[in-house]
């Protein structure tokens, strides 16, 4: 078993890209679960590290994992649980109320979605320097954009084969189906917001742009995001060019529904099958291509794409949401059918 463990793929991001305090105190991956006190250390009551604790007693900052557009992702030790957690800290605009409001909302949406593909959240608060933060599971793995890049560059031993990626992709679609049932549209699905773990996990990151539909639009347990005050107004464009649906790009806010996510899933599936992004080029060219494309066929870019999947992409990428494939589950079902029929 040990040999297997050592052979684990080095491409998975289990080594954080951070400076850690010292290698002795920290085992990179699979650190032993129980933190038995050192024989040399005087035995303390086991509950000492449990609380009540203030922020610095609870969390030890280990380093920075990544910088997002508005937030910093830090790696912290969560002392009561003796585990590492990821802490997302809003650090852009300390005084902008709307940014703070959105951040809390992001934490709430992510925190209320309980699904294996939604990173579990642990704690939401304000740190002693006044910054909002929430903590969540520290996710280790390979981002889908990197996995796709390996595949399209024709790497000899890609971390994931096309078949493996398709199977993960189907899981991803079911996670979105779950969010959609609860009335949440992610609005920013793209390969760099998807993380693939080594042990079959798929995670959808970054719920910061999520749109919460009205209660009546949710099929069960609508999300309570304390919103109302801040609705996105018509003409707002939110998302990432190249992956956002045409209605999103045109700022038709009321037409942005769960089918906008279906489009983004279609764009990712297209990229997986065609080995190149659906829309390429400068922002100006991608914008035009996004608006002009009405259904796209990966087969036209790469030979050997199975017909069923080609049609699936086409249906998911229709420009008019009314004509588009109706659900994320429909994508999952079609992929599953393909996988169970093929070799």
């Amino acid at each position: 078993m040990v040999a297997v463990a050592e052979e684990r793929d080095a491409r998975f991001e289990r080594e954080p890209r951070v400076r850690l305090p010292s290698t002795e105190t920290w085992a990179p991956f699979g650190s032993t679960l129980d933190e038995e006190p050192d024989a040399a250390e005087p035995a303390r009551p086991a509950t000492d590290s449990v609380g009540p604790l203030d922020f610095h007693e609870r969390y030890e900052l280990l380093g920075t994992l990544a910088y997002g557009s508005m937030a910093e992702i830090r790696l912290c030790k969560d002392r009561p649980f003796a585990r590492e957690v990821a802490m997302k800290v809003l650090r852009n605009a300390p005084s902008a109320r709307s940014a703070r409001w959105r951040f809390v909302r992001e934490a709430r949406v992510q925190g209320q979605l309980s699904h294996p593909a939604v990173v579990p959240t642990y704690d939401l608060g304000i740190d002693p320097s006044g910054d909002l933060y929430f903590t969540m599971k520290w996710v280790r793995g390979l981002r889908l954009d990197r996995a796709l890049a390996e595949l399209s560059e024709g790497a000899e031993r890609p971390a994931f084969s096309e078949r493996q990626l398709l199977s993960r992709f189907s899981q991803l679609c079911l996670a979105l189906e779950y969010a959609h049932c609860r009335g949440v549209v992610h609005r920013d699905l793209k390969p760099s917001n998807i993380m693939l773990g080594e042990f079959g996990e798929v995670y959808v990151l970054d719920w910061g742009l999520a749109k919460v539909l009205t209660e009546s639009q949710a099929r069960y347990e609508p999300i309570d995001d304390a919103s109302g005050a801040m609705r996105t107004s018509d003409g707002s464009v939110l998302g990432t060019i190249g992956y956002m649906a045409p209605e999103q790009l045109q700022g038709e806010v009321d037409r942005v529904t769960t089918r906008a996510d279906v489009y983004s899933l279609g764009a990712m599936l297209f990229e997986l099958l065609a080995r190149e992004p659906l829309h390429r080029g400068s922002a100006a060219i991608q914008a035009l291509s996004s608006l002009k494309t009405d259904g796209a066929s990966p087969r036209e870019r790469r030979e050997g794409v199975p017909e069923g999947l080609d049609e699936l992409c086409f249906a998911a990428l229709r420009a008019d949401p009314e004509q588009r494939l109706e659900s994320a589950k429909a994508i999952a079902d079609a992929i599953d059918a393909h996988l169970s029929s093929g070799p």
């Binding site: 557009s69 107004s233 018509d234 003409g235 939110l238 990432t240 060019i241 045109q250 700022g251 608006l291």
Partner: peptide, 19 residues
């Protein structure tokens, strides 16, 4: 004017409508 604004490739944008 169909759409427009600072639409950088690859990165998330949040362009609010100007009312």
């Amino acid at each position: 004017i169909v759409t427009g604004g600072e639409l950088g490739t690859g990165s998330t944008v949040a362009l609010e409508a100007d009312a």
